[in-house]
């Protein structure tokens, strides 16, 4: 098990709840399969965010159950069969909410962190 953890040591574990936001945001650009989603998140975060498959697939299936995304089997550009996920209109609304919540949160945290002690 130890080589695996070495490989991940420079990556940040995702905050609880942010994975949903990232998945929905990724799907804004069009339908995508699970592998594709994890690749996009990794690439767009500059290799910092690693989505664990043990979190990704449960999250995809949960979002689908909540009717925020829907899925269908399609062929990829490389002619491979893959299950593609796509935002529903409810999912788009949800993304808006999640995003504004995230902004509020990061503003709040940012404000706290910006508040340094005054120099004497």
């Amino acid at each position: 098990m130890s080589p695996q953890s070495e490989k991940y040591q420079n990556r940040i574990e995702l905050l609880q709840g942010t994975l949903d936001l990232l998945i929905l945001q990724t799907l804004m650009w069009g339908a995508q399969h699970g592998y594709g989603i994890s690749q996009v998140i990794r690439a767009q975060s500059g290799d910092v965010l690693q989505v664990d498959t043990g979190s990704l697939y449960p999250a995809l299936h949960r979002l689908e159950r909540q009717k925020w995304i829907k899925s269908e089997w399609r062929l990829t550009d490389n002619n491979q069969r893959a299950k593609f996920y796509q935002l529903t209109s409810a999912g788009k609304k949800r993304l808006g909410e999640e995003r504004s919540r995230w902004n509020q949160m990061s503003d709040a945290i940012g404000a706290i962190l910006a508040n340094r002690p005054e120099e004497v």
Binding site: H33, Y35, T53, Y57, R81, A82, K83
Partner: peptide
């Protein structure tokens, strides 16, 4: 679905 992930 997982097989296709691995294949890709």
């Amino acid at each position: 679905e997982i097989q296709s992930h691995l294949n890709m």
